[in-house]
Structures are given as C-alpha cells and as structure tokens.
Amino acid sequence: MNQPLAARLVPQLDPVHDGRHRLRDLPLERESIPYVISLPEHGLATAIYTWVNKDHLGGALFGVLGPAVGGAPIFEAVDGIAMGPDRNFDDWNVGPVHLSQDLRMQTSRLRATAARAQLDITFEALHPAYAYGFHPDGCPAYAATNRIEQAGRVRGTLVVDGRSYAIDTTGARDHSWGTRDWNLPQHWKWLHAQSDETVVHFWQIQVEGRIDLRGFVHRDGLMAEVRTVDVDFALDDQGRQQRIDAVVHDTAGRSTRVRGEYFAHFPVVPVPTCTLLEGAMRCEIDGRAANGWTEFMWPTAYLEYLKAQRATG
C-alpha cells in the first residue's frame, strides 16, 4: 500500500548510480536512460533513449518529432549490440547515440545521429536527482530496483534536414536499473514539466488494481515528494494525449498546477503487448512558461480497442 507521506527532507542518492549497474541474472533485468527535450518554439521535440540488459546487449533510439519534421517522426534505433560488462555511461556509444555522463549526476553531453537529424547537447542538472528508492514504499518492484529522475538545463543544437536549431531550454532525464515488467501495469502517466524555477515530476501507475504514485516538486530550492495528484486530460481519436491539467500536491503542503497542450507525439513499443505514447507539450507551471513531456502507457490491445471505439463514434 502507499504509505501517507510526511514532510521530510528528500534523501540524496550516491552519485555512483549515475554509472552502470551490475544487473541480476533475472529474465527482465535491464538498465535504461532516456532524455526528453521539448522545443515548442521550433515545433520540434526529441527523445534519446539507451538501454542495456543483463547480458550486456545494448540498444538506443533517437527520435525527432513535431510539426517541423513534417510527416512521420525521424526515428533511428538499434538493439542487441554487444556492449560488454565494462563500458560505462561516461563513454557510451551505441548505434545512433553517444552519451557521456559525468558519473556525478550533474552534467552530461549527448550526441545522436540519424539520416535526417543530428543532435549535440549538454545537460546540466537543475536539482539533486530524486530517487524512487527513498520513498517509504520504495521503488515499485515491477518498474526497477531503483530509479532516478532529474531535470536540467539543456544547451546545444539540433539539425533537421540541414536546418540548425539552437537549443537553450530545460529537459529531463531518468535512469532506472533492475527488473522491468512491461506487462504488469495496466496504465500509467509519467510527467515531467520544468522551468528554470520549478520542476514537477510524477509517475502515476495503475497496477494490480491499485494506484502507485511517485514524484517530486522542486521549487524555491526545496524538493518535496508528491503526495497526491489530480489529473484531467483529453485524448484524440488515436488515443494520444491532447491536453493535460494536473494539480500536484506535495509533502511541503504546496499545490503546483501544470497545464499543457501537446504538439508532438510518437509511439514506442518496448514489447508487443505494451505501447508508450510519448507526448511533447508546451505548458505552464502555475501560469509561468515551462516545457514538458508525458508518457502514457496503454496495453497495446486496449489501445487498439480504444482507437476503434473512437473511430466508430
């Protein structure tokens, strides 16, 4: 069960977890790091995602989406690349992605290349990473052994079809390691919204008939854990998120409102039975301009049914 959360100082994780972990010899063990950056001013968004499993086989994807791309998202992905046990995330080169994290949970450089797009950015953390493992109920076992979430200042360039876009904004990353059972959850909403002043993150998961909730608000220099969220949202006829209005209540007694409208989507299918609908949004946090991203998870068959229902009115 979810324990009632008291106000407390959010603990900080050993920065050694910025690096690679020794995974257990279990079927669903893997480690992954995504970065998501929303660029509504350019009509663009980009997601970079890399992973490695217990057998040291890695993968990566680089996606660029949004109206400025025109048509289908740019999408470059590889999987099953032998990475060996010793390569770390300070020099992680897999398929289209080259990631250099400082192994201190503070900065990183990220480069990615696809046929039509090239990305070269730096990430500078805006706050200490939030670790799910410190929640009184821990990190959900079906999600990972532990998981961190962190927003940062992102600077660099994104080139799409030869046109260069300067990036100077905020983005988010996470890092999880351990078992990921994609089939146990029935639905989730993962949200990151951030400005230079405020960062909001929650992951609300419907699983085994209950709702798990983790997250934090970092505002005025104080990080507090999410106690409850009230989420209103709308989907389009493809089941994609159109808008969201979330009021996040934290253990410091604060309520923070995130309102967003989506301008770019793309689906990720980690296993055939599970579809992640990624959505980049332009948003406000308590009325002030911010950037955001959400991921809505649906069982693929359910999502197909939902789309069919909406198609027939």
Binding site: L9, P11, Q12, L13, D14, M105, Q106, E124, A125, L126, H127, P128, F134
Partner: peptide, 11 residues
C-alpha cells in the same frame, strides 16, 4: 546545485 549537507543512507 547539489545539496552537500544531507547525509548518505545505506546503499
């Protein structure tokens, strides 16, 4: 950025 006054926990 980092809060260097919070102690480490068991890990």
């Amino acid at each position: 950025m980092a809060n260097d006054v919070a102690p480490l926990r068991h890990d």
